[in-house]
Design a protein around this nucleic acid. Structure first.
Lengths: 198, 198
DNA sequence: AAATTTACGTCAGCCATATTGACATATTTC
DNA sequence: GAAATATGTCAATATGGCTGACGTAAATTT
């Protein structure tokens, strides 16, 4: 029954009743499978890993990592945002942000402009170069998302949106919804705004 | 328009036309928003982060990290699995695995038993202690998943499963489906097996 | 006007997790 | 007997987090 075999072929000389994997039949731990949705848990793990892998590959060519992607993405999506806001979104320390942000600025992907009304601020913007890269990465993820929704019922995308939104901590859910809304709100019928009620 | 404000209040003395954030109105980069589902992209980011945060907190108390969780989880779910299989699932190097696995073994969460038919193998099993921890962590994630599905249509869980499965690289999708199936297959009407067709 | 808070930035060190490459050992398969 | 497989280990390196401590400029409060 239970066989893993994530790699090559099965364990060939499996003469005995149960070979390498899966001696659950021989009375292992009773597996209190209870009501845990292991499939969802594992699907999330694999889906997210592959989801990030496309951008990761591209970024590696630039000498960047996933951390750079996050920064680039949110700055590109929220031009003129404050450093503090970015820290709040990413939930990392300013020291951690500082490193990657500096590289992105030094290499001309992100620009900092002093705030007009508050000159302490260094408002963040992507340059044309930075926007281009951000868009390239977003497109990779778009392709994967589009493929994932193919063949699913019409309301699937909406269901997934609701599901994901409700996976977020209730305390920050509204903030996230607001942050995300932006360019989406005006758009199609699947506005996140409609989800706030739940 | 576009305002971030993930943290505190708005930028108070916003006298001028557009203050700190959101000078898109002043003609920033034209935002080729095109057809990119930014909301989904960002929801995935936030949802996954919060999803992993519950276990992370518990693991920290044990001096463990997310890496330990992954190992513990898959070993618990696939008792008797080979190290090679685990490497294939996690897609990390044996050196990386070695470190965390050793800690889990040394501290009595995981047991290694020589393979019956192939004595080179060190088949992995969780101990009672290890199973307990694995279950505790899984339950935390279950709570969140249950909350996320609350209020969604009856077929939502199934839709989400299909979506996540199709987010996975086509090349490995079947293997993942097989791996996941296990205890799920026999269960409810929402068997992953049914998704393989797509 | 002085005191405090806020928005940054930076230096310095530590930790977890992942990588590559090289080797070693036991066992199984061809 | 040779080759492939399963596993482990030593050593060096990179990334991306963290804490703690300071420092400076500008805004807000008192």
């Amino acid at each position: 029954m239970a066989d893993v075999n994530f790699n090559k072929q099965s364990h060939p000389g499996a003469g005995a009743g149960s070979s390498a994997v899966g001696d659950r039949a021989r009375g292992d731990t009773p597996r209190s499978s209870s009501d845990v949705p292991y499939d969802l848990i594992e699907l999330l793990f694999f889906a997210y890993r592959d989801f990030t892998s496309d951008p990761d590959d591209v970024l590696a060519e630039f000498g960047f990592g996933r951390a750079h992607h996050r920064v680039l993405h949110f700055v590109d999506r929220n031009p003129g945002m404050m450093v503090t806001d970015l820290l709040g979104i990413l939930k990392i320390t300013k020291q951690s942000l500082g490193r990657v942000l500096k590289q992105l600025v030094d290499q001309g992907y992100i620009e900092q402009r002093p705030g007009a009304s508050d000159r302490r601020q260094r408002l963040l913007h992507t340059t044309a170069k930075g926007h281009g890269l951000a868009l390239q990465l977003a497109r990779l993820q778009t392709e994967r998302l589009d493929r994932a929704i193919l063949g699913l019922p019409d309301d699937a995308a909406d269901t997934v949106r609701r599901f994901l939104l409700q996976m977020i901590d209730p305390e920050t859910r509204d903030e996230v919804a607001q942050l995300i809304r932006k360019d989406t709100a005006a758009g199609g019928p699947a506005s996140i705004k409609a989800l706030d009620q739940t």
